[in-house]
């Protein structure tokens, strides 16, 4: 559970096709695991607007981002 003011980033492993586009938009926040599926490494490694771009830019819409109950991507 994210604390107030913190971003909560979730990845749907069924939808993710491992395009790696998220790590293009927000390097350091996302990486791919051994199965080629996106994982969150460090949610503070890039500015919030970049992370939101990563969520919006995911070609499979596998990334959901919420903050204080509000859906950002």
């Amino acid at each position: 559970m994210a604390l107030p003011g913190e971003m909560k980033i979730e990845i749907d492993r069924e939808l993710c096709m491992g395009s790696g586009n998220c790590s293009f938009w927000a390097e350091g926040v996302f990486d791919l695991d051994d199965d080629g599926i996106a994982v969150v490494l460090d949610p503070t490694a890039a500015p919030e607007d970049k992370i939101i771009l990563a969520g919006q830019g995911c070609p499979t819409q596998a990334i959901s981002i919420t903050k204080d109950g509000e859906k950002l991507a």
Partner: peptide
């Protein structure tokens, strides 16, 4: 279009090794 879960690089264990280089 939004969601685009295409198969151009395959999928699963044999998904294209060079897909990130190609992209």
């Amino acid at each position: 279009r939004g969601r685009n879960r295409h198969l151009a690089f395959g999928a699963g264990p044999h998904r294209c090794l060079g897909s990130h280089l190609a992209r």
